[in-house]
Amino acid sequence: MPVHDRKSKIQQSFASLLDIPKDVMMDMPKITIIGDLQVFIENHRGIVEYGSAKVRIGVNAGEVEITGSDLVLRNIYPDEIVLDGRVESVRWNR
């Protein structure tokens, strides 16, 4: 078992023991999807690819890939991104 995996497992069990939200404890992104209109990503690691049909956003353990049409980055802050447009899929790439 790799060291990283063991560490994250301990973190997870600790988080569930204390009832602390996982995004805070494990530095995970928090993604909120409003219908097919808006995707809201907190705790990101920058934009990997940006196109009007496909957006990839770096997060702690991989990438989040959003496909759709007319995708617009409504706001970009150092820790959150608001993505508008017609969303078709939100996918996790490891």
């Binding site: 940006y50 995708l71 617009v72 980055l73 409504r74 706001n75 970009i76």
Partner: peptide, 8 residues
């Protein structure tokens, strides 16, 4: 730097 309404 704060960017917004980024469109391809």
């Amino acid at each position: 730097i704060f960017l917004w309404d980024v469109t391809r």
